[in-house]
């Protein structure tokens, strides 16, 4: 807040030095967003229309229901719900895996911390398509995992093409984004606070619940944001690991774009963006209000 005020009153020097960044932000952030909005609310002849946005909410398709009869569903709302559901599950798994891991890393020796953080970052250096293909070869019915299980005479599991496979892919891709903010806040945590809690009568579980958890809440919120947003809009993982059975919003945008329906693709992207911004604003509000360390 204070910094903002300062820059508003800023001298010519600050104005000149920050100009390139402002220009960057305008060209690469604001202009593209404006284009998305513009396309979302225009038709092929660039006349104003709300049809694209409306189509997202009203388009229906017919699927076979549980009793075998065709059922009409709202196509994109179903896709959106599925995207949210998978993203929430993936985020929850990332949090459950990432939180203890980040804590363990933050309490290790300086050298071990460096090594472990590097190991966590290394997969991020690989292309995301390659990582997804790697998971295909692992999870396939005749893949590495199943061959391994068979060799141990444990029988085979069918994972590829299931929701589980898609979630595994998402968790693998986005886990580092959960660990990084958690680790950075835990590494800064004063160890004497933990000792003080022990001294004042807390068993280890109490220390976690009453001191470590509340103090790391800002990291938890950041981690959730960093994983939830890309998971909701992800595509390709679902196509490859889900065998195309779990069509997500990201896939829908890609599909419409490839099919040349730029305006409808933009409409889906626009709605997703608005929903995410609203969710982020809500989260920020809750953090500020209920957790220590919110601004």
């Amino acid at each position: 807040m204070r910094q903002e005020k300062k820059s508003r009153r800023g001298s010519l020097v600050t104005g000149v030095t920050s100009a390139p960044y402002e220009l960057w932000a305008v060209i690469f952030i604001l202009v593209p967003l404006a284009f998305v909005a513009y396309y979302a609310f225009t038709d092929n002849a660039f006349r104003f229309t709300t049809a694209n946005v409306a189509r997202f909410f009203t388009a229906t398709s017919s699927v076979t229901g549980a009793d075998g009869d065709p059922v009409q569903t709202r196509t994109y709302l179903v896709i959106a719900w599925r995207s949210v559901k998978l993203a929430v599950i993936a985020t929850a798994v990332c949090l459950l895996l990432g939180y203890p891991l980040a804590y363990i890393i933050s309490r290790a020796s300086a050298k071990a911390q460096k090594t472990m953080m590097t190991l966590i970052m290394i997969p991020m250096w690989m292309n995301f398509l390659i990582r997804t293909y790697a998971w295909m070869t692992i999870l396939q019915d005749t893949g590495i995992l199943n061959n391994f299980l068979a060799a141990l005479r444990l029988g085979r599991v069918h994972i590829i093409g299931t929701q589980t496979a898609v979630i595994i892919g998402m968790v693998y891709d986005y886990l580092p984004y959960m660990i990084l903010p958690l680790y950075s806040i835990m590494a800064k945590m004063d160890y004497r606070l933990i000792e003080a809690a022990r001294d004042l009568g807390c068993a280890p579980a109490g220390v976690l619940r009453r001191v470590i958890l509340p103090l790391s809440m800002p990291g938890v919120v950041n981690g959730i944001t960093m994983v939830l947003i890309p998971s909701i809009s992800t595509f390709y993982i679902s196509q490859k690991l889900g065998d195309g059975m779990f069509f997500l919003l990201g896939d829908a945008i890609e599909g419409q774009y490839v099919a040349g329906n730029l305006h409808f693709a933009a409409a889906i992207a626009f709605i997703l963006m608005v929903a995410l911004l609203a969710a982020m604003a809500l989260m920020r509000h809750l953090t500020d209000k209920y957790t220590y360390g919110g601004q």
Partner: peptide, 19 residues
């Protein structure tokens, strides 16, 4: 362990819970 001892500590630089 510390939490089972009837002894308390005033730490250097206090170690108050900031939250």
């Amino acid at each position: 362990p510390p939490h089972k001892r009837n002894v308390n500590t005033v730490f250097q630089r206090y170690a108050l819970f900031p939250h």
